[in-house]
Structure formats: C-alpha cells, structure tokens
C-alpha cells in the first residue's frame, strides 16, 4: 500500500525553543523543521521568535536573520533572493512556495511554520534530496532535437510559434508543484510529476524541435503521464504563476489526437 503516514524515523521529536529578543516590538514566532544527519535524533520543529521591526519583509529575510543572529547551523538552499533561481522552495504554512517571494505579513496571524518540500528524503533541515526529480528531468531530454543541416545562424521561429513557449520556459525548476502533488507523493518513482511534465510540454510545443512523435511515445504510459488526476495543487502552488496542470492536459490532448 501507499504509505500515507510518515515512516517511524521521520516522525517529529521534541523541538527546541530558542531565546528570543525580550524587547521585541513586533514579535513573531517561526517554527522551523530541523534534521541533523550527524545525530541519531528524529527531525524536530524548533521555535524562533524574531522582532519583525528588525526583519526584512520576506520569509527568506526571516530565515537569514535566524542564521545570522540565532543559529548559524540552520541549512537551506538559497541564492538569488528574487524568485529567479528557484532554490529557496519550501513549505510555508502548509503550502509550497519560494521563501524569497512570500511576504511575512500575508501569512495571517500566529506562528509561521516552515518545513521542507513535502515527501522528499531530507539531507539536512530544509534541504530535501532532488535526485529523482533531476533524473526525471534528464529523462525527458530537455534539449532541442532538430533534424537537417545546422543553420548558419540561429534557428528561426515565427512570433506566433515563439508565443507557444510562454508559460513554460519561465519555469525555474523549484519543484514547488511536483512536491505539492499527492499523486507524485504516492507514485513519484514512476510518475514524472507536474514540473517535469511542464518541461516535456515545452519541448512538444517548440516549432524548432523535430522529435515530437518520439517525445509523445515516451510519455504514453499510465504512470509517467496519466497519474495526473487534475488535483490542481501544482497550479495553485506555482510561485511563478505558471499552469502545469494545463500543460499536462494539452499533452494528453496531443496524445488523444494521434489515436
């Protein structure tokens, strides 16, 4: 059976409450998932309280303040701090998003809970293993496969054909969508998931690519593509406002059309 509960080694242990500034004018609690691979301890939720008057506006600002001033051992991936690199993807109050694009004051009242992207093997703290997702991305061959002689300059494309790539080339591969999808949780070893399928569609839609049929062959499988049940968690989570669910539906239509 699909395992709906967390395995025993993944259940949360007793967390630690870190000292908070006593003179905070705008205190706000952040509950953060911690896991230390060097110890045998279970993962735990640590509590940090920051003064929002002294903190930047984004969730990422709060995490960086924790690292700078409270606990330098907190681990996460981050780079660009403006939604271009896709590194700081995590689960914020139960929904996936990029910490750098999520405003603290849009998170309502109460503590802000930060956990890693769901259903991943955790390397440390907020860093999950993306190995399978990268392998699946490699599998759809995300590069142009054009037949015929090399052109002397770039491969040309009409403005209308170029427009077909809008909505998929902007993806930053943060995997907020894939790890929000219950179907990917239960069958992520065989189902490609929304992020990879959005990219698969990006190459199906490219007028300069000559291997559409082969690409469709590789997707025509009850598990690789058709585990998508249009649950819509992917589109709801995408921090770039893209629509993986729609791209998957269009891929299914292409496959139905050639029948």
């Amino acid at each position: 059976m699909a395992e709906f509960r967390l395995p025993p080694n993944s259940r949360l242990g007793q967390g630690k409450t870190w000292d908070s500034p006593s003179d905070a004018k705008k205190p706000r609690e952040f509950r953060v998932y911690r896991f230390d691979p060097a110890s045998d301890d279970h993962p735990r939720m640590d509590s940090f309280t920051l003064d929002l008057d002294e903190t930047g506006p984004m969730v990422l600002d709060a995490i960086l303040k924790i690292i700078d001033e409270v606990d330098p051992s907190l681990a996460l991936r981050r780079s660009c701090r403006e939604g271009v690199c896709g590194s700081c993807a995590m689960n914020i109050n139960g929904k996936n998003g990029l910490a750098c694009l999520t405003h603290i004051d849009e998170q309502g009242d109460g503590p802000i809970t930060l956990t890693p992207l769901p259903h991943l093997e955790i390397i440390k703290d907020l860093v999950g293993s993306l190995e399978t997702l990268y392998a699946q991305y490699e599998m759809i061959e995300p590069w142009m496969k054009a037949d015929g002689p090399e052109p002397e300059r770039e491969r040309l494309q009409t403005p209308e054909d170029r427009e077909k790539l809008n909505g998929s080339y902007e993806c930053v591969l943060c995997f907020c969508c894939a790890t929000a999808c219950p179907s990917y949780w239960w069958n992520g070893d065989k189902y490609l998931g929304p992020a990879v399928l959005l990219q698969a569609h990006r190459w199906l839609a490219d007028s300069r690519d000559d291997h559409t049929g082969e690409r469709l062959d590789a997707l025509d499988d009850p598990f690789r593509l058709y585990r998508c049940h249009t649950i819509m968690n992917c589109t709801s989570a995408c921090p770039k406002g893209l629509n993986p669910a729609k791209a998957i539906a269009e891929t299914k239509r292409k496959l139905a059309q050639r029948r």
């Binding site: 399978t132 392998a135 490699e138 499988d221 058709y226």
Partner: peptide, 15 residues
C-alpha cells in the same frame, strides 16, 4: 536515479 526513472520504458497504453 536515472535508471530507476527510465525503468522499463513507456508502455504505450496510457492514451
């Protein structure tokens, strides 16, 4: 991971 993802290939029965 790559071998596990490709597995036995697409069955061709999904559509």
């Amino acid at each position: 991971a790559y071998r596990r993802a490709t597995a036995l290939g697409a069955s061709g029965t999904g559509a």
